[in-house]
Amino acid sequence: MSFGESARVEAHVAAPPERVWAALTDADSLAAWYWPAAGSPAATSDPVVGGRFGVRGDGMGFAGEYAELERPRRIVQSWRWDGDDRDSRVTIELTPAGDGTDLVVVHDRIDAATAEDYRAGWESCLARLPGFLASDSPPGNR
């Protein structure tokens, strides 16, 4: 099985990069918007190089480690679903654009079938981000 595939998703959100960064790295924010279908997910995040993050809910979850952090522009992290036997990698680029931020998410070191699943998952996840950022309780700037 080849693990040289990747999933790439692009999105634009009407919020400045610092707010988007906080939504991507703050545990309470991740629990609120990332995976609400999991009921009441629990999230952890220690946004320092070598720090861990994860989201768990409905008996499943994922976790990883921050490999690179260039606030508020770039996040590189390992990624592993519960039960997987190897890590993949996620790179998130944030670029100021007009009224907000352009995001590019590349999830790589995966096989072709997994790439399709992750692409759909990231699209679904990022579709929830603008609503969260527009809510009355935006993420903190940790």
Rank of each mutant, 00 (worst) to 15 (best):
I110F: 01
Y118L: 06
P138G: 09
D87W: 06
A134Q: 14
G100L: 07
R89M: 12
P96R: 11
R109P: 11
V105N: 06
G131Y: 06
D117E: 11
D108G: 09
V106H: 02
G121P: 01
W122H: 00
H107V: 03
S88A: 15
L133T: 00
S135L: 02
A127T: 07
S135M: 07
D102N: 15
D117M: 14
P96A: 13
G98F: 12
L94D: 06
A134K: 14
G100N: 03
R89H: 13
T91Q: 10
D136W: 00
E116A: 11
D87P: 06
A127Q: 03
A113K: 15
L129A: 04
A97T: 12
G121I: 00
P139F: 04
D111A: 05
S88R: 13
A113G: 13
G131N: 07
A113D: 14
I110M: 02
C125W: 06
S88E: 11
E116Q: 12
R89A: 11
A134P: 11
V104H: 08
R86C: 04
A115D: 07
R86F: 05
E93Y: 14
A112Q: 12
S137M: 10
R128A: 10
G140H: 04
A112T: 10
A112I: 09
T95Q: 15
W122G: 04
G131A: 05
G140V: 07
I92F: 08
A134C: 15
L94C: 09
A115P: 03
T95C: 15
L126W: 06
P96W: 09
R119D: 10
A97S: 14
D117C: 13
P139H: 00
V105Q: 01
F132P: 00
S135G: 11
D108Y: 08
L94N: 02
W122Y: 03
V90Y: 06
L133P: 02
D87N: 08
S124R: 14
L129H: 03
W122P: 02
R119E: 15
A112N: 10
L126I: 00
P96N: 11
A120M: 14
D87Q: 07
L103V: 08
G98M: 10
P96I: 09
A134G: 12
L126K: 00
